[in-house]
């Protein structure tokens, strides 16, 4: 077993399999499609908002196991969170990739991606759904509660 094998642990594989259920949301407040510059993988994110509260995150993912796993986790964690919590999730995944800072709170599940921190060439695979989310939220602008 090599170090690279650690990336593909059971939690990641389980999450990736769950990406199969991703689909469009009913009333998308925003939609954004992002490409991974490295490989051309693609993630379309849609967010359904009720005011500042997230009703659903969906979309379509065409990507590697890591991208699919990250997309699945995003869609599972986001419902019920506030917009600010999504922004917090984006910051947490960026910090996890950049320096291995463990994720906390609602985003604790991101820690499944901790082995990817040591594989810089794969960071964008994990970040892609969150980059698409950030661009998607930028379209809606901040709202008062």
């Amino acid at each position: 077993m090599s170090g690279a094998d650690d990336i593909y642990d059971a939690r990641i594989k389980t999450l990736a399999a769950q990406a199969e259920t991703l689909g469009p949301v009913d009333h998308a407040a925003c939609r954004h499609e992002a490409d991974n510059f490295l490989c051309g993988d693609r993630m379309a994110v849609e967010v359904d908002l009720d005011g500042n509260r997230v009703k659903a995150v969906g979309g379509k993912v065409r990507g590697c196991l890591l991208t699919r796993a990250a997309a699945a986790l995003l869609s599972q964690v986001a419902p019920g969170l506030e917009r600010a919590d999504l922004q917090g999730g984006i910051k947490q995944v960026e910090a996890l990739m950049a320096d291995g800072t463990p994720a906390t709170g609602a985003w604790e599940g991101l820690n499944a991606f901790t082995p990817v921190h040591g594989a810089k060439h794969r960071h964008d695979c994990v970040l892609l759904p969150f980059q698409a989310l950030a661009a998607c939220l930028d379209q809606t602008g901040p709202r008062d509660g």
């Binding site: 094998d5 593909y8 490989c39 890591l66």
Partner: peptide, 8 residues
Amino acid sequence: HPHDICEL
């Protein structure tokens, strides 16, 4: 996915 193959 090809990148998962190439990684391993």
